[in-house]
Design a protein around this nucleic acid. Structure first.
Lengths: 157, 157
DNA sequence: AACGAACTTGACACTCATTTTCATTTAGAG
DNA sequence: CTCTAAATGAAAATGAGTGTCAAGTTCGTT
């Protein structure tokens, strides 16, 4: 198996971010390591939103054990770079998933994490105009749906 | 100052919830205590979304000291009863606020908690139909905007 | 191919929100 | 007034996420 394209892509973006925000005047960059490759590979294989701990566990079982701290850092870097989607589960835990580039929202099972990308109202424009009206800057927004998927609904009668 | 109507209302709803979900066959109920009164009073006075700890602190300074555990429990009960709005801040901390009954969303300052209720797309219908299409049950959704309010934007240049 | 500076890793200690436990207190029905 | 379930709160526990720092790696340079 070859290195997924996302790795290279991620690394490029991460390097840009690093150069721009953290080390403006240096020519340093980020490096490609087997740990980062492993985390990206896991994201490619996992279909649903997963917590850092779950991804860490998955990697361990898979044989590509990576330190928990490193998994935290890598997932944060990837989400900061826009490479993965993050959402806050209802219990406040962050969960990550590799998503399509297209505009979409999520229908997430709060039991098993099963995720469906769904079409929905484009809230970007609305959020921007409402924010501007009230003088808010640096805005972000959330629009997600949580519930019990068909499977989990059936299990709990 | 008389006991705010919300207290009685909350207690009624809480009693219903309790009876229905927790103690179906008994005639037990919840009780009106000065701690619960104090928490509700605080919510009436505070305009913005506040964390449990902040509300606990507010009560302490105010003289109506209430145990932190009790504040946690009361806020959870009130939000479960639909008496207060809860949202998850971007850092995963839950914040509470007494809101209008009307349908609305929130524009929340991630720095100071300042909140503006805003009109927005009615996502209930959309969420329900999308969920149904995919067999999801017991759904809930979030649609909030976070940013820096005019004040906080100014402070940080 | 070796070198070395900067970057990365990971074990561990730590922070901090929230929950659990449990002994004590209190509301409110009878 | 009495009794009991409900409620409180102090303290300990839990658990996600972060900070630290010594040791390990990457990769451009020699």
């Amino acid at each position: 198996m070859t290195t997924p394209a996302i790795i290279t892509h991620s690394m490029n973006i991460m390097m840009m971010v690093t150069r721009t925000k953290l080390f403006p005047m240096t020519s340093v960059g980020i490096r490609s390591t087997k740990q980062r490759t492993a985390v990206s590979a896991a994201l490619n294989e996992l279909e649903d939103f997963r917590s850092t701990q779950e991804i860490h566990e998955y990697l361990k079982e898979r044989g590509d054990s990576v330190g928990l701290t490193t998994v935290y850092r890598t997932l944060q870097a990837l989400s900061a770079a826009g490479e993965v989607d993050v959402i806050l589960r209802e219990d406040g835990e962050s969960v990550y998933r590799l998503c399509s580039d297209a505009h979409h929202h999520h229908l997430v099972c709060r039991q098993c994490g099963h995720t469906v990308e769904v079409e929905g109202p484009t809230v970007e424009r609305w959020a921007d105009s409402v924010s501007a009206e009230h003088g808010f800057t640096d805005v972000s927004h959330t629009l997600e749906i949580f519930g019990l998927c068909a499977n989990c609904s059936a299990v709990s009668h």
